[in-house]
Amino acid sequence: MMSCERVEEMLPPYVDGDLSAEETREVDLHLDGCGECVATLGYLRRADAIVAGWPQTPRHMQPHLARIDEGVLPRIRQRRRLFPLLPRFNRVLPYAGLATFVLVLGAAVLALSMVLPGLPLTDAPKSAPNPVVSRPQEQLRPESITWYHDGRVADIGKGTEKFKNIVSAVEQLLQRGARDPSHPGSALSGDTETMKRSGAVLELIYPKPGVKHAGVGPHTHVLLRFDRGVTVLMGDAKYTEKLSVPNATEQEKRLRDLLGLPPPTLFAYDG
């Protein structure tokens, strides 16, 4: 028969069902005749329950959370003020090397064609138009739509009439916003302080490869971010521009109605 010490060590995997059938049988046998180990098993189960019930943030930690904000947020915002174009630059940088390579290659080919005039450069087939860009806009429908707010998510199912209405409304919104000369790109670059208070994001995920909306650039995701009368379009990682959309408050309300979502607590429909 196993010792109590050995059985105690086996109790956590015993509780989790991680022991072999043979080990489980031996522990069962021991527990049948050992009140001490049965008591330990009871305390183990209780301790497990207590740990599982610990709140995410202990009560005595709560008063210190604001101090963490004071230490972290200014650092983030300072960098944002100092390097407002950093995201754009970061995204462009990896392509700079490729562009240089293409230029050098082009120059080399040109030089070769001058040196070797018989080179059959002119016989090269013309490249076919990009099949993605040339597809009619109507065929490019999102695969899914997701609405995030306050860390929560609502998925909108496929193939429903509501889905079509939402897609149609969002695409109209995208194109109107992108074409509106009174709302130039990056209009909101200085307005991020307001945006931060909203977690409301409508995300459309398009089938790969990317979709091209007027003025928005190629991407597979489109984000519509709402905040207090402001709507911002954000593409995926390849998309560097941000565009505002006119009448954003009304547009958001319309989309929320279509989605069947109530207005957010913090959102003010004050136009």
Binding site: V72, L73, I76, R77, R79, R80, F83, L86, P87, F89, N90, R91, T146, Y148, G151, R152, V153, A154, D155, T192, M195, K196, G199, E203, H221, L223, M234, D236, A237, L259, G260, L261, P262
Partner: peptide, 30 residues
């Protein structure tokens, strides 16, 4: 309609924005 579940890895887009230097996205993560 608002089915309340945690983002199932759904913050990946925000993470990508933050990875590319978007301070606002990082603030949301924070």
């Amino acid at each position: 309609m608002e089915e309340v579940v945690r983002m199932p890895g759904g913050d990946s887009l925000i993470v990508e924005q933050a990875r590319h230097g978007d301070a606002l996205a990082f603030e949301a993560i924070y």
